[in-house]
């Protein structure tokens, strides 16, 4: 089963990660699947609704994704954070790298940046 599903409406690529644990055992496969989905729209929304746990290699994956998107001048928005994922991203100050929004529906809205940046 695919661990990444994605839809594209021209403005937003919405990627859902269909794993419960974004950890060292899952990252390599997800990275490969993400390759084909990125760079197709000016904004990429990464939906982590199903992810309950993220470790440091998961955090590393987000940095990798952010860097790839920055190269193509696309924006990265991350939504649907579990408490644990929020704890990890906060401690690494990743809200400075990309926009974090609570609700994935909100992510595709007109101005996610102002409403979403570090909404803790």
């Amino acid at each position: 089963m695919k661990k990444v599903t994605h839809t594209n409406d021209g403005t937003n690529t919405i990627i859902e990660l269909r794993v419960r644990d974004l950890d060292v055992g899952a990252v390599a496969e997800i990275k490969t699947e993400l390759e084909s989905a990125i760079g197709k729209a000016p904004r990429l929304i990464l939906d982590l609704e199903e992810v309950e746990f993220m470790d440091s290699s998961g955090a590393g994956l987000l940095v990798w994704l952010w860097r790839r998107l920055r190269a193509s001048e696309s924006e990265l928005v991350i939504c649907g954070l579990s408490q644990q994922v929020r704890v990890v991203l906060d401690s690494l100050n990743f809200s400075r790298l990309f926009t974090i929004v609570e609700d994935c529906e909100q992510g595709a809205g007109t101005d996610p940046i102002e409403g979403g940046r570090d909404s803790r």
Partner: peptide, 11 residues
């Protein structure tokens, strides 16, 4: 953001 690894011990 120049590296995407090595966050473990920091965490």
């Amino acid at each position: 953001g120049t590296e995407d690894g090595g966050f473990g011990l920091f965490l």
